[in-house]
Design a protein around this nucleic acid. Structure first.
Lengths: 220, 220
DNA sequence: TGTGATAATAAGGTTAGCCATAACATTTTT
DNA sequence: AAAAATGTTATGGCTAACCTTATTATCACA
């Protein structure tokens, strides 16, 4: 086993790559953006991660997790999402804030605690945001849904997951009832990358395309 | 409110002082010992804490928490001990390991999470090691017991709390059933700072004086 | 094919928290 | 009161992650 403790920073980078990754690679600039660091810092860190064999960086082509890196990332996601469940279901913390609080806890959680937590929670399979919780061995089945931003006008869909992580974005979506499990219909899509108009819970709401990219849905 | 986030290191120092403190002051060397850093490092850190108004350091006389420092320390202890309760009562984690795991979690816990946890746990008053859990405002009533090392031979006592923090020490005590709530009798005290012989749960066990100093008891 | 946008690297700086070694100050013990 | 033990400060060094500014490399498109 090569389970030397990873630094918090390392874990955050690997997790961010896993969260952004569409099974392909992630631009270092996207990474920098999500982690709120400069491009230069992200590049430095990516180099370090590469030296540790956690990622593969092809300059100008993006970063990919190695097998080892993916393992660590799954593990982080598992801890993160188990804590999300606990905070939401048992501590009754507001949906939009759960991600953020869980994020702090995840780095402070030993394997034994993680597994005890999983048992306590009854081995949940998805987190409050709708994402699958990786198993202890890192495996999980990816959601098969499509981005809300790519749905045709007139379609009725059900929200599978919300992939945003910033609390303010989550709050915004929560206020508009765009939450896992809810059903909605695309009423209109404004031209020129304009906002969508959705019918949610009998009300019409407008949603910018960039936010719609955070929402994963399936047709119903 | 002066609640800028304290660094993990700062929290650990303040907590250590609070845990060692007999309402008086703590030698910097004791602090260094408990935190496993060199004396030089501890002195440096104490200087920094002094500059922030968290402690008072009288050279050669020890460190004392200021009002502000004590407030922060109480807060850390509250988080620590609430997590201990959770890990022990709900996650069923072994008594001796709870302190250590809780220690990592405490630094990653926002006030809102702390209070939600307190509610979830039903506002417990003592941690699994027997120590009082400070209230949200930092107040708590100190235990009034005496050190096991100072009890007269022949006395029967009840364990109130175990003040050790190192997992191996806790394991050692756990194996010998020296746990909060247990009753025991001092059978013999070897001369020259020698070990105590105790009767615990009908068995006799020997316990070195330095370990006995971790155990707080009350006569019965 | 050249040009503007984007990505990467180079160079030098900052901070917190640690380390070792050595000198100096004080307290405690003899 | 001197010696031994202990505590403190001074110096100089280290590391991980960040930063800024400037330069260079590559890509993508007109």
């Amino acid at each position: 086993m090569n389970s030397k403790p990873m630094s918090e920073s390392t874990e955050m980078y690997l997790k961010a790559i896993a969260e952004l990754d569409d099974r392909n690679s992630v631009a270092v600039a996207r990474l920098a953006e999500r982690l709120s660091v400069t491009n230069v810092s992200a590049n430095e860190m990516v180099r370090r991660l590469g030296e540790q064999g956690l990622v593969l960086h092809k300059p100008y082509k993006g970063v990919t997790l190695t097998k080892k890196g993916r393992g660590v990332a799954s593990n982080v996601l598992r801890r993160q999402r188990l804590w999300e469940r606990f905070l939401h279901d048992h501590l009754k913390i507001e949906w939009a804030q759960v991600y953020d609080y869980a994020c702090s806890l995840e780095h402070a959680t030993a394997p034994e605690v993680t597994e005890a937590l999983a048992v306590f929670l009854g081995h949940p399979e998805i987190c409050p945001r709708g994402n699958p919780i990786p198993a202890e061995d890192g495996s999980f089945e990816p959601l098969d849904g499509i981005l809300l931003s790519e749905v045709e006008v007139g379609t009725a869909v059900r929200v599978l997951a919300v992939n945003a992580t910033a609390t303010d974005v989550l709050k915004y979506l929560q206020e508009r009832n765009i939450l896992p499990g809810r059903e909605l219909e695309i009423v209109e899509a404004a031209p020129m990358q304009g906002p969508l108009t959705l019918r949610v819970e009998k009300k019409e709401v407008a949603l910018g395309l960039s936010l719609a990219k955070f929402v994963i849905v399936e047709p119903i």
